[in-house]
């Protein structure tokens, strides 16, 4: 990561309404948990976008390495039999 003279980074996840998944909204800078939550609130919920917020220190996120993309993701591309649409539905089958 580039040298950042600001406070440490936090990833912000927002839930738009109860029951929905939390979706990544962006990042904020903050020196502690409370400040991260407040900054996330001030930055991402000004127009009523959310009802709940998670903040996670950016360095707590474990990310996949783009150099491993071949190994990680390519094998999934040519295995159409893993998709339900690969199989022909028997006629008359119910409740599948």
């Amino acid at each position: 990561m580039a040298t950042d003279s600001q406070l440490s980074m936090w990833e912000v996840f927002m839930q738009s309404k109860p029951g929905n998944n939390y979706i990544h909204a962006g990042t904020v800078h903050a020196s502690d948990k409370k400040m991260a939550l407040q900054n996330a609130r001030d930055t991402y919920t000004r127009r009523g976008e959310g009802t709940s917020i998670w903040v996670v220190p950016t360095d707590a996120i474990v990310a996949s390495d783009p150099n491993d993309n071949d190994m990680f993701f390519d094998p999934a591309n040519d295995k159409v039999y893993r998709l339900p649409t690969f199989y022909v539905m028997p006629e008359g089958a119910k409740a599948i």
Binding site: Q6, L7, V28, H29, A30, Q38, N39, D42, T43, R46
Partner: peptide
């Protein structure tokens, strides 16, 4: 001092 505080 920081963007987040500016918004706040």
């Amino acid at each position: 001092p920081i963007l987040e505080e500016d918004l706040a």
